[in-house]
Amino acid sequence: MAKLNCNGQTIREINSSIRKCISVGESVAVESPGARHNLGVALLGSGEVTFQGSVGYYCGGLMDGATIRIRGNAGWGLAESMLDGQVIVEGNAGNSAGAAIRGGTLVVQGDSGARTGVSMKNGLIIVTGSCGYMSGFMGQGGKMIICGDAAEALGDSMYETVCFVGGKIADLGNDAIVVDITNEDRAFLDASLRKHLPNTMLKNLPNGDNFKKVVSGKKLWNFDKSDWKTWEQAL
């Protein structure tokens, strides 16, 4: 595994070095990331990069195919607009983690901030802790698994994103509804958690039977003047 120390290097130099490794499928350990912004942006390839500390905004943004592991916390917009790949944060993630992702998997092994999964189009987001308000806002597709609690306005104005919540839901957003969980969902939850989380974490998490499933009620998909009660907050 290649090693790279961020001290004394610009973001451009750091990313350039990371990309050289990723493009040929090589793994790289990045030391002293210093919570700097835009680390590991637009990584196109199958290699793996490990940040040995916290990262700032937009880490893993616009990536396609790589694997990123963060041994620390992450700032806003983690993995935003990811097409494919895997991002694992061993700490917490700031606001808008997984914003607008179109594929891939984001795993937050702690809590994640407001608007987690906002405008996500596809892919999978797993948060082992709790998530902030308006998570799943305008989600268009993909799945989000929140093992802990979800703050206010969960799943507001969603299209086809499916949210699973293992803890308490403070409040559902506009047009978000809780529906029965199916056997298929349970199997998906158990398989996803087993696949993406270490065994040491699994024993403390709810199993598939204990999740609530939140989807769109589809009442805001088309303007409908006859249902004013639903629309008064959404027009």
Partner: peptide, 20 residues
């Protein structure tokens, strides 16, 4: 979805530059 004010935008612009 991932930025609010001009300070965030400064970082977002750098992200777009890095991506290209």
């Amino acid at each position: 979805p991932d930025m609010l004010g001009p300070d965030d935008m400064t970082i977002k612009i750098e992200e777009l530059r890095e991506a290209t």
